[in-house]
């Protein structure tokens, strides 16, 4: 919805053919163990890794961020870490559901007005490597990462009407796709 409001076309990707039809990918929230298993069983992991190697831009939130990370702590040993974002994340690092929270956080590239960030059984970013840039923190913890054409978030930008992060992602994605097309 938020992407459509920003003028992009959005569609669901559940098969390799559907993956072929998109320029950029959103890896949304959910349960990373479930997503990981479905990627493996339904033959999406290899085509996804191939597209990522080819530079496909991604917006990953919460469970999606876990999938995109270099290392997953407290996950299942068999769950996928695609290794695109140079971060190490701890699954459910902010605690169980009763500790889920929302808060206003400043995000430098979005300007002065803070962003209402909704954290639901959120992953905790414990380490950030040299390739990733921290664009927002909550307290001492990084909560938003930008890396080349990718944006990774611990929280859920789709839970509010504020589409500035979707807009930021589309701008970064468009810039990356223009460069690769040129």
């Amino acid at each position: 919805m938020a992407l459509r409001d920003c003028g992009a076309e959005a569609s669901t990707v559940r098969t390799p053919a559907e993956l072929d039809n998109v320029d950029a990918l959103v890896l949304p929230g959910g349960e990373s163990t479930t997503m990981s298993r479905l990627l493996q069983v339904f033959g999406l992991e290899a085509p996804l890794r191939e597209r990522l190697a080819g530079g496909m831009p991604t917006l990953s939130t919460c469970a999606g961020l876990i999938l995109m990370s270099r290392e997953v702590l407290d996950g299942r040993p068999d769950q996928i870490a695609l290794g695109v974002l140079d971060v190490s994340v701890r699954r459910n690092g902010y605690g169980r559901q009763v500790e889920s929270f929302e808060a206003d956080i400043p995000i430098a590239p979005l300007g002065v007005a803070p962003f209402r960030a909704v954290f639901i059984r959120a992953p905790l970013i414990e380490q950030v490597g040299g390739d990733a840039e921290v664009i927002a923190s909550f307290g001492s913890n990084p909560v938003a990462i930008a890396q080349g054409p990718h944006v990774g978030l611990c929280f859920h930008p789709e839970m509010t009407d504020d589409s500035r992060l979707h807009q930021l992602f589309l701008e970064r994605a468009a810039a990356a796709l223009e460069v690769s097309a040129a």
Binding site: Y94, G95, D104, G139, S140
Partner: peptide, 8 residues
């Protein structure tokens, strides 16, 4: 392990 007080 997390710090849940915002910088603001």
């Amino acid at each position: 392990t997390s710090d849940k007080t915002g910088s603001n």
